[in-house]
């Protein structure tokens, strides 16, 4: 994956160099603090980002993924249970006959292959990116909430109130306009820098290491091997949406 990125960055640099008109000096490609990130990156159609959650490693009293998500994306809390925004939640699975133990697992946007939210969006604000991420172009969102109704996983929330940039909030994430819909982005800004989503990083650091993230199309990644080898399940497979958040040990 890194090789591809490097090659792409090189190609981008060459393209920019040749595009320059004579006499115009291009700002020397700045070296960001993490110098491994090339100046230009692009989503690749060959990639398919996915997540695998090992339910057995997820304990009921741990919520480090939620805290990390809130910190990274400064997801606003309004103090109103009906209107609070949740990108990732912990849900409990209880067996009705009580034959299986109660399970606790994180639920987030499944980034479906056939997302109903995108299908119903009247303005084209919800879309599938080339690498399989289901994202919202908030510049185009009119807040009609069709997508919230269409999503069977309750992954989407409307921003009901105006928000302020929290002190010490991540400057890479804009604050939300009032009246747009938002949801988990798999931390797209981190993925584009070659990093893992904030919840996955937090889970491996201070949680049980239950979450695994990677490119499902690359046979060398751990996630593609594990999804291939192990018995994994997705939520509501019967709907045929092909979610990209897989669960192991349900």
């Amino acid at each position: 994956m890194m090789d591809r990125r490097a090659v792409l960055g090189l190609g981008g640099a060459v393209a920019v160099g040749t595009l320059l008109a004579p006499g115009i000096r291009l700002l020397a490609a700045p070296q960001p603090s993490s110098s491994s990130v090339p100046n230009k990156t692009e989503a690749l159609a060959t990639q398919r980002w996915a997540m695998l959650i090992d339910v057995n490693k997820c304990s009921a009293d741990c919520s480090s993924c939620i805290a990390a998500c809130r910190e990274e994306n400064h997801v606003p809390m309004f103090g109103d249970a009906d209107r609070d925004i949740h990108w990732i939640r912990k849900v409990e699975l209880r067996d009705r006959e009580r034959r299986k133990p109660t399970l606790s697992l994180p639920a987030l946007c499944n980034h479906c292959e056939h997302p109903p939210c995108v299908h119903v969006c009247p303005t084209g604000a919800s879309f599938i990116r080339k690498d399989g991420l289901v994202l919202i172009d908030e510049h185009r969102c009119i807040g009609c909430r069709y997508c919230i109704i269409a999503c069977p996983y309750k992954s989407r929330s409307l921003v009901y109130f105006s928000t302020q940039m929290p002190i010490g909030g991540n400057p890479k994430i804009p604050i939300r306009a009032k009246g747009v819909v938002e949801k988990c982005t798999f931390c797209v800004h981190r993925i584009d820098e070659g990093l893992q989503p904030a919840c996955v990083e937090a889970c491996s650091r201070s949680g049980g290491g239950a979450m695994l993230f990677g490119d499902l199309n690359d046979p060398k990644t751990e996630i593609s091997q594990r999804v291939k080898m192990l018995r994994t399940e997705v939520m509501r497979e019967d709907l045929g949406l092909k979610p990209h958040v897989h669960y192991q040990g349900l």
């Binding site: 100046n39 692009e42 990116r129 510049h139």
Partner: peptide
């Protein structure tokens, strides 16, 4: 950037 994921950092 939003729709195609093209990020030119500078």
């Amino acid at each position: 950037t939003v729709r195609e994921g093209v990020r030119v950092r500078n």
